[in-house]
């Protein structure tokens, strides 16, 4: 079987794997590729262990700059684990271990080998459940700026407004910026969390099933938002909802039991998947 992987990276380096190895195939195909955008990050043979349990097995994945890449797969397949490697959330808990690389461009640094604090300054995250701080709306959006030592009121005002407008929340909250974030509805809270992540202008934002706790209307708003943001910031999104992936992403990666099964253009993955397991999953035969 020939995994047809959409050519996307300018990276053509990894050819060292044995023939027949699907990961090697993945990179071999990339050689022939014109570059729509270039990559913001590139996961190479990344393995990850929670204590003794291996959760990721030599995963490869390109993340295209200023596009939406969706990670799909049944629960427990490792998609959230992979996402959380990108901002080193696993480092907060003892006993976790990485092996392999996530190259970050344009600096070409290995993200899993540098100071996690610096990684998190560059890559923002939006979580499964809206998790605003128990503070005012303004303080929530300004939090990421204060963490970076930005204290000047005029700068904060301007960037808080910009982030809230960006997150399509400004009109709803502009009159109650000093009200508690907990006074907002679930969907508004999640958009507030997106504004909070946007305010420091990160290079990439990770979304971990951002709509799983929301009703359909709020979900639609978040989906619109993700698509609008795509032109400006690189987005990696985990979703358990395949329709969502097909609606909002440019590229889709399908994972199963800690392995990367298939990666490609979203249209192609959903209409003509290469791997029979992908086909089974998207047609709803398991997961």
């Amino acid at each position: 079987m020939q995994p047809n992987l959409r050519p996307i990276t300018r990276e053509t380096t990894d050819v060292s794997s044995a023939p027949g190895d699907s990961n090697a195939d993945l990179h071999r195909h990339q050689e022939s590729v014109p570059l729509p955008h270039g990559n913001r990050a590139d996961v190479r043979k990344l393995s990850f262990w929670y204590g003794k349990t291996q959760a990721l097995k030599e995963v490869n994945l390109p993340v295209v700059d200023r596009k939406v890449t969706a990670l799909i797969g049944p629960s427990g397949c490792g998609k959230s684990t992979l996402l959380r490697c990108f901002n080193r959330m696993h480092d907060l808990y003892p006993g976790n271990r990485y092996d392999g690389e996530i190259r970050l461009y344009p600096e070409d640094e290995n993200l899993v080998a540098i100071d996690p604090g610096l990684v998190r300054l560059r890559i923002g995250m939006v979580f499964q459940k809206p998790n605003p701080f128990p503070k005012s709306i303004y303080a929530n959006v300004a939090a990421g700026l204060e963490v970076r030592g930005i204290k000047k009121r005029s700068v904060l005002d301007e960037r808080v407004e910009r982030a809230l407008r960006h997150a399509a929340l400004w009109d709803e909250v502009k009159d109650r910026l000093n009200g508690s974030a907990y006074g907002l509805s679930g969907g508004q809270q999640q958009r507030l969390c997106i504004a909070r992540a946007l305010a420091p202008e990160p290079e990439m934002i990770l979304f971990d099933e951002p709509t799983s706790a929301l009703d359909p209307l709020a979900t639609a708003k978040i989906e619109d938002l993700v698509q609008q943001l795509a032109g400006e910031v690189t987005i990696l999104i985990v979703t358990h909802n395949m329709q969502q992936a097909s609606r909002i992403s440019d590229f889709t990666a399908f994972m199963l039991m800690g392995e990367m099964v298939e990666y490609g253009n979203t249209d192609q993955v959903f209409t003509a998947p290469e791997d029979p397991r992908t086909d089974q999953y998207i047609t709803g035969r398991f997961g």
Binding site: N87, F127, G144, R196
Partner: peptide
Amino acid sequence: IPRDLREAAYGLGADKWQTVSHYVLPA
């Protein structure tokens, strides 16, 4: 204090002391 709150702070780029002093301690 829920894990969410800590992860939200770290996710924003806060280091340990910022997380503890700005977010964990007030809560």
